[in-house]
């Protein structure tokens, strides 16, 4: 085949392969993050969010102590760190079950109701308060308020807000598309690689595709990392801030390292390809 035509065809195939490889990496990573709840739970574990969420909840009760006149010890009896951990995990699981139209979050508030009821009864006994309608109303309000505060604290990823704004359903749609997209991209990459193999200088062109897709992944993530973009992000409270920024930082870091790795492999293959080509040309010249 004409050398120039060969080079043009290989260039076009390499451009396609670059886009396919970049898209494939992003798809595979997104699949890892959103196809199951494991990634989200791992991040919660890694960022010590269980303890942060519990401490944050107790701080909220402590801060509102002056308003509610309920000592924080009452709330400490009502909620434990184990309770927080199990409910955070459950909340994430239910979020994912929601994609299949299943799963309703059930909270275990028996300890809350018991603790607050006992406190109110003790208070009534000590201060000779009559258990009338006002008493019952106040008790019900206190229980509802504690439950509402706890529900908000458990939702560390703000799944409820994401659901009401349509974000969670978009993620659900993406989950459905990802398996087919993965298959299509892998097939496309294989076909293009075989076509390049049939033409000349496989190492050079595949190396170019790897180098280009590696740069596409690593350059933006490097900019995000070194500009401190994630740290400028203002989030609702310390627990969510910690979780979200550390998760984004971890994802960014992983993509950066993968991109640099791909680019490095690509450079090595390009060098090998150039060396092979030079040897061939030298051989042809000597003939």
């Amino acid at each position: 085949m004409n050398k120039r035509l060969n080079t043009v065809i290989c260039t076009v195939l390499t451009i396609l392969l670059t886009l396919v490889l970049a898209a494939l990496y992003i798809t595979l990573y997104a699949d890892r993050c959103i196809s199951t709840e494991d990634f989200m739970k791992q991040q919660v574990q890694a960022t010590d969010t269980y303890n942060n969420a519990y401490d944050s909840l107790m701080k909220k009760f402590s801060d509102s102590c002056g308003e509610t006149s309920i000592p924080v010890e009452v709330d400490e009896k009502a909620f434990s760190r184990d309770w927080m951990k199990s409910h955070i995990d459950k909340r994430i699981s239910v979020g994912f079950a929601d994609f299949d139209g299943e799963g309703e979050m059930e909270y275990d508030f028996t300890a809350v109701e018991k603790s607050l009821t006992e406190y109110f009864e003790e208070y009534a006994r000590t201060n000779h308060v009559i258990k009338d309608e006002t008493y019952e109303k106040r008790l019900a309000e206190s229980i509802a308020n504690a439950e509402k505060t706890a529900v908000s604290a458990v939702d560390v990823y703000h799944l409820e807000t994401m659901k009401s704004s349509g974000i969670w359903s978009d993620i659900g749609t993406a989950r459905n598309i990802i398996p087919r997209l993965k298959t299509a991209l892998i097939a496309a990459a294989a076909v293009i690689a075989v076509l390049i193999l049939l033409l000349k200088n496989f190492f050079y062109w595949i190396g170019t595709a790897l180098f280009a897709s590696g740069c596409i992944l690593s350059v933006p993530t490097a900019i995000v990392k070194f500009s401190g973009y994630i740290m400028r992000f203002a989030v609702k409270d310390h627990t969510a801030y910690n979780l979200v920024t550390k998760t984004l930082t971890a994802v960014n870091g992983n993509v950066l390292i993968s991109g640099l790795g791909m680019a490095a492999v690509g450079i090595i293959m390009i060098i090998i390809g150039i060396i092979i080509r030079r040897h061939k040309e030298k051989g042809e010249t000597e003939q």
């Binding site: 260039t11 390499t14 451009i15 670059t18 886009l19 970049a22 050079y204 190396g207 170019t208 180098f211 280009a212 897709s213 740069c215 596409i216 350059v219 690509g266 390009i270 390809g273 150039i274 080509r277 030079r278 040309e281 042809e284 010249t285």
Partner: peptide, 21 residues
Amino acid sequence: KKKTSVVGWIALPILITVFCS
């Protein structure tokens, strides 16, 4: 036969990277 310029072969991956980006 004319030898192909190495500079060209090194520049091509960079051009492809810029285009795809």
